[in-house]
Each structure stands twice: as structure tokens, then as C-alpha cells.
């Protein structure tokens, strides 16, 4: 499964990264090399092996439905690149691409 420049551009779109043509070329080579090294996984016969998503055999970690104090609005907005003092301000969302 050799990775192509068009794959790289597609993935960059999914990851929301504006790459230059030069970066696309470099990344195609670099990712190709890394993927080449990790292709050994594809050659392993792991049929019937259960996947591990999590190293600890823990289950059912939940919290009680109890209110805990959160952040002040001032703190919430303190790192905002732009705000109107009440909400986060962003440019128009046409072109956000996807919607819930």
C-alpha cells in the first residue's frame, strides 16, 4: 500500500492542515518510508487475536451525577484568540466543510 501524493493531500484535508506542495512531496516520501517499516504488521497472522484498546483490564469507571464548580467566563475566554467578552468569536463558517 504505497502512499501517494493524492493520499497525502486527502489526509491533510481530513486533518485540516494547509500543506505546501513542497511539504506534500516531503511527507509523501517520509510517510512512505515509515509505512514501509511498519508494513511488517501486515505480514503477521493475527487472525482470532482480540484487539487491545486499553492496557488495563478495568471496566465501569463512572462518576456520580453531581454538580462540580467549573470555570468563570473570564477564565474560559482568557486564552481565546478573539472574543466579544461573552463568547468565542470566529469568522464566518461557510466552508467549514462538515456539519454535525
Amino acid at each position: 500500500m504505497a502512499i501517494t501524493e493524492s493520499d497525502v493531500r486527502h489526509v491533510a484535508m481530513l486533518a485540516r492542515l494547509a500543506l505546501t506542495d513542497e511539504q506534500v512531496t516531503t511527507l509523501t516520501a517520509e510517510l512512505g518510508s515509515v509505512l514501509g517499516h511498519i508494513d511488517e504488521l501486515q505480514r503477521l497472522d493475527l487472525t482470532g487475536v482480540q484487539p487491545t484498546a486499553h492496557p488495563l483490564a478495568m471496566t465501569n469507571r463512572m462518576r456520580a451525577d453531581v454538580i462540580v464548580p467549573g470555570l468563570s467566563r473570564e477564565a474560559a475566554l482568557s486564552n481565546a484568540p478573539e472574543s466579544d467578552g461573552m463568547a468565542f468569536l470566529i469568522p464566518t463558517i461557510t466552508g467549514a466543510g462538515e456539519e454535525s
Binding site: P69, G70, L71, A76, M86, A87
Partner: peptide
Amino acid sequence: CGCPVAFGGEPNTRVCPVC
């Protein structure tokens, strides 16, 4: 997270690091 569930209210007043 432990922030309250409610409708409306002043913007960004029911938030915490998690949400």
C-alpha cells in the same frame, strides 16, 4: 463533566476544562 445541564443562560457560564 460536573457542569450543570440547563437551557440558555449567559454564554459560556456553564463550562469547565472538560467541556
